[in-house]
């Protein structure tokens, strides 16, 4: 086995192990941290699949942004009150069944599909980062979706600020 292949499997196993740990542990903070490991592993897998841009975006958005905010929220709310953070697990059998079935469907799909026959799977397209093509497509062909997403995020941001700001006013009123 060549070195890149070993590293590829290492990242794959890292993600899978982290995901399993998320399902098994009850400590919320461990869940958040293993979610980070899971995403980093996925980013590594993306790199080896020739999608460097998506890998870096994955780290920047999920790990550097969303997950840090998530942990930050947990830290702000609970540790300062001195409570222990544990989650409960309910409906174990049902959960296992549903996820098992989903896994089966996905596995059948992957095994049935002939990926290597697909046109975009050639080694040539995987060797470049394709940054220019990506940017050009985003700003021309998919510009409407791109702008809409931006607008949606702006609305969400304003909404968040409104909710947070409103609460503070009430506090002042109560005091």
């Amino acid at each position: 086995m060549s070195l890149p292949l070993i590293i590829f499997y290492f990242f794959g196993i890292l993600s899978a192990a982290a995901a399993i740990y998320i399902a098994l542990t009850k400590n919320i903070i461990y869940v958040a941290f293993s979610l980070i490991l899971c995403f980093i592993g996925l980013a590594g897998v993306f790199v080896f699949l020739g999608a460097e841009f998506i890998a870096v975006t994955q780290i920047l958005v999920y790990v550097g942004g969303i997950l840090v905010l998530l942990i930050f929220g947990v830290m702000l709310t609970n540790r300062l009150k001195g409570e222990k953070l544990v989650s409960q697990s309910r409906q174990k059998l049902l959960g296992f069944l549903v996820s098992g079935m989903l896994f089966y469907v996905l596995l059948q799909g992957i095994l049935a599909a002939n990926f290597s026959a697909l046109e975009w799977m050639s080694a040539e397209s995987g060797s470049q980062t394709g940054l220019k093509t990506l940017g050009m497509n985003l700003m021309t062909e998919y510009v409407l979706a791109f702008e809409l997403i931006g607008l949606l995020l702006l609305i969400a941001l304003i909404g968040a600020v409104y909710i947070a700001g409103n609460k503070r006013k009430e506090d002042k009123h109560a005091a």
């Binding site: 460097e52 841009f53 870096v56 780290i59 920047l60 470049q128 980062t129």
Partner: peptide, 10 residues
Amino acid sequence: TDLGIFFLLA
């Protein structure tokens, strides 16, 4: 890599 600075920030 083409991604240079983007990777660094991430």
